[in-house]
């Protein structure tokens, strides 16, 4: 019986440890790091509370605070980054609509940060086929990535809109991003790479269509 009891206890401890690990990943820590001064924590709490009241996703804000602490940024810089992200989240939600998911809003905020305009996000939402509820998260991530790599935002928005309007699957959008990136690294101009890869992707989608 002693052996059974020992094995059961060990197993219980192992299961609890795994459960704690999983729980930590499922529910992000919504506390502010103790390394920050009380005044900074109070300021950050106000910003985050405002976002919560506005119905915006707040986990990206907590994550931004923790990233700032990890990178040893000074406190005014952390506050400025969180304020800016809060504004971008609000603008993204306005552009994408009240029904936008949390990750769409976060990806939209990131696209705005990369140089896209709120109107680009709205056009993307309209480009999505009527009646479909497919998330725009991947399209927004691709947009932000292209703009970050030097593709003019307006050009990137036009190409991704075209692909989304043709119901290009998410996996193909990611391949599109990779191909453009490869072309850019190979020395091709952003406009040329984008144009060629967009036409190629449209041809591929049309070929696959029954």
């Amino acid at each position: 019986m002693r052996v059974v009891r020992t094995v059961a206890c060990a197993l219980l401890v192992a299961l609890l440890a795994r459960g704690r690990e999983a729980g930590a990943q499922d529910q992000p820590d919504r506390t502010l790091p103790a390394q920050l001064s009380a005044a900074t924590r109070a300021t950050l709490e106000r910003i985050i509370d405002s976002a919560r009241v506005a119905g915006l996703p707040i986990d990206p804000l907590y994550s931004k605070v923790r990233e700032g602490v990890f990178r040893s940024a000074d406190e005014p810089r952390v506050i400025a980054a969180v304020q800016r992200l809060g504004r971008d989240l609000g603008d993204a939600r306005s552009a994408l609509g009240d029904s936008a998911r949390a990750e769409e809003i976060a990806a939209g905020a990131n696209a705005l940060r990369a140089g896209l305009k709120p109107a680009d996000l709205s056009r993307l939402r309209e480009a999505r086929k009527r009646g479909t509820d497919h998330p725009l998260t991947v399209a927004l991530v691709v947009l932000a990535d292209l703009a970050t790599r030097g593709v003019p935002p307006a050009l990137a928005a036009a190409s991704v809109n075209e692909l989304v309007s043709r119901n290009v699957p998410d996996g193909s959008l990611m391949s599109f991003r990779q191909n453009v990136e490869r072309d850019l690294l190979g020395g091709r101009s952003p406009a040329s790479a984008l144009d060629a890869r967009t036409r190629s992707m449209i041809d591929e989608v049309e070929r696959r269509r029954p």
Binding site: R71, A80, T137, V141, A147, T148, R177
Partner: peptide, 26 residues
């Protein structure tokens, strides 16, 4: 040294010096 994933999409929010990467889980 903090570095982005060279093979993943980049996040544009380089508030603290260098860019991050993005992974999407469906």
């Amino acid at each position: 040294d903090v570095t982005a994933d060279p093979a993943a999409p980049r996040a544009a929010d380089d508030d603290f010096g260098s860019a991050n990467s993005v992974v999407l889980v469906s």
